[in-house]
């Protein structure tokens, strides 16, 4: 579904991402994890062209990402960030329907889709008429999810999607998101720094450090066959209270 081939990125003298080749397969949830500055967000943002790689290429759905097909690829990818990334000047509904309206989808299509998604994301109709600032953190995140899913894209990219939430709301949303992913069979790439959350969502984990992929595999591989001493340290530091969720 997605492959990044020999991509790298430097900001000035700092190498944010060492040359790496990595693929993500259809219908699976892959979680990129690592300490801040490890390059996991850079990698995710490359997929939708928010970061242009210095070397290599990005292939999405068989097409190499170029300026010409960038918008089309973006339409096929739902992107959601911490706190939803909602536009404060638009109501929740206008945020959700912005792209569909721009693409001149029919009003009937839009209404139908908003109804489906508000049920899926658990957003009551009256909340959709409010502005982001008038919503709770959890509601903003749910509206952000609705926006990402509006055109039913095959691909979902989530950058610290639950990072801004209080623990209870976060727990609740983790459960809901997981069931939504399972139901929709999307290709999901998620970035988090929380090992518990990663373990909960991931079909496959990718651990990064200092712009480099350290280990990739299932959770068991990480606990039982750490690639190096750092992986062991990372697992020990993260595991204690949160890994009990599943």
């Amino acid at each position: 579904m997605i492959s990044l081939e020999n991509v790298s990125k430097a900001y000035g003298a700092r190498l944010a991402l060492q040359p790496a080749t990595i693929g993500f397969s259809r219908g699976r949830t892959t979680v990129l994890i690592g300490p801040s500055g490890c390059g996991k967000s850079t990698l995710l943002r490359m997929i939708v062209g928010l970061v242009r790689p210095d070397t290599g290429r990005v292939v999405v759905g068989g097409e190499t990402l170029t300026a010409a097909n960038l918008e089309r690829v973006r339409h096929a990818a739902g992107y959601m960030i911490q706190d939803g990334g909602l536009f404060p000047h638009l109501t929740a509904r206008d945020n959700v329907t912005l792209l569909a309206r721009h693409l001149r989808k029919s009003a009937a299509f839009i209404d139908e889709r908003v109804r489906e998604l508000s049920t899926l994301a658990g957003i009551p109709a009256d909340a959709l008429t409010r502005y982001p600032q008038q919503l709770s953190g959890g509601q903003r995140q749910r509206v952000g999810l609705m926006r990402a899913l509006m055109l039913d894209p095959p691909l979902l990219l989530l950058d610290e999607p639950l990072g801004a939430l209080d623990p209870v709301t976060r727990y609740e949303l983790q459960n809901e998101l997981k069931s939504i992913f399972a139901r929709l069979a999307k290709t999901v790439v998620m970035v988090t720094h929380d090992m518990g959350e990663a373990a909960y969502f991931a079909d496959e984990l990718v651990l990064m450090r200092e712009g480099r992929v350290v280990q990739r595999g299932a959770l068991d591989d990480f606990t039982e066959r750490p690639a190096d001493a750092y992986v062991g340290d990372f697992m020990r530091a993260q595991r204690a209270p949160t890994v009990q969720i599943p």
């Binding site: 943002r45 939708v48 062209g49 928010l50 960038l70 918008e71 089309r72 690829v73 973006r74 339409h75 990818a77 992107y79 960030i81 911490q82 706190d83 990334g85 909602l86 536009f87 404060p88 912005l98 792209l99 721009h102 926006r147 990219l157």
Partner: peptide, 11 residues
């Protein structure tokens, strides 16, 4: 984040 959200949306 807002700028990038607008870009990532594909507008």
């Amino acid at each position: 984040p807002l700028r990038e959200s607008a870009q990532a949306l594909g507008l």
